[in-house]
Simulated assay, not measured.
Amino acid sequence: MKKIFSIFLLFFCLLIFSQKKWDLRFYNELVGSEYVIYADNTEVMPMSVKFSFKMINLKSSIPNDEIIVIPADTKRFLVAKITPVNPRDGNQFSYTNTYNFGNVVQKDFEEDYIYSLPFTNGKTHLIFQGYNGKFSHQKDAALDFDLKIGDPVYAAREGTVVLTEDSNLQGCPKISCAKFNNKVLIMHNDGTFADYAHLKYKGVAVKKGDEIKKGQLIGYSGNTGFSSGPHLHFSVFINRIDGSRTFIKTKFKTSQGDGIFLEEGKSYTKND
């Protein structure tokens, strides 16, 4: 009997960070009687993807909904092989996928890393919203520093810039304005990410792919996006495939000492 391979490739992309499209491509090749699915990831960070298959007379080398982590800057990464069950019968398959940036199955990270305060050395700033804050940090381990528009922002930890945005002018105290956040996103060497948000228009001083040192200038504070007033939003997290985040409480070096957890309503002086 003549073999029939009907392929229906359906893609669903989970869009994060103002509907950012990541530079990730999936494609398949017919090798003998099986199809091989490959991925090209030209991002500077790993990307994670979950596949769901519908198959007739075919089997996949990976089970449905298994999460595959594709390394950064990788081409022709083998995702799966689709093989006929009975080579004499017709077959077809389709799949959907969901993907997100980072290693979403990661569990471990460097718990005792000491971060640098993300503002000018010698300056003192207030934490006006802390972990699990009532305005926009409910269930989030994030910090809001009372920086003014134009105040310099420095990297709290070394890493690689994976995303920048500074084309937005708007800001308002509603979640609908979150899409206007100007920001810098940095990946650390333990796989976690730091988000520096609400930067001013044209207020980013680095570019994607830059290797950043701790204490390096990365941008200027502002009042864009989901914001009730000028400030710097800072958080560290591990991404998950569904778009949620596992937030990490971070220890800082301050004039009071090393390894300090910052608290809402208190002021801290940078003394590096």
Rank of each mutant, 00 (worst) to 15 (best):
Y113P: 01
K20I: 10
A141I: 12
V31D: 15
K183C: 06
H137N: 03
G209V: 09
V79Q: 02
G222S: 01
M45C: 05
K54P: 04
N182V: 02
D151S: 08
K183G: 11
S227K: 06
T269G: 03
G222K: 04
N121E: 15
Y113D: 12
Y95P: 06
Y38H: 03
V162R: 00
K249P: 06
D40G: 03
K213R: 11
N271A: 11
F12L: 09
T164N: 08
F135S: 04
H198Q: 07
Q138V: 14
L262R: 02
N239Y: 08
V206D: 05
T254Q: 11
C172N: 12
A39P: 00
S6V: 11
S221I: 11
F145R: 00
G171T: 03
H198M: 03
K20V: 06
I260Q: 05
S18F: 00
H231K: 00
F17W: 10
K200C: 05
G222T: 03
G257F: 05
K134N: 15
K183T: 13
N103A: 07
P63E: 14
K214E: 13
G215M: 09
L185D: 14
K139R: 13
G150I: 02
S116W: 10
L143Y: 10
I241T: 01
I149P: 04
S116D: 13
I218A: 00
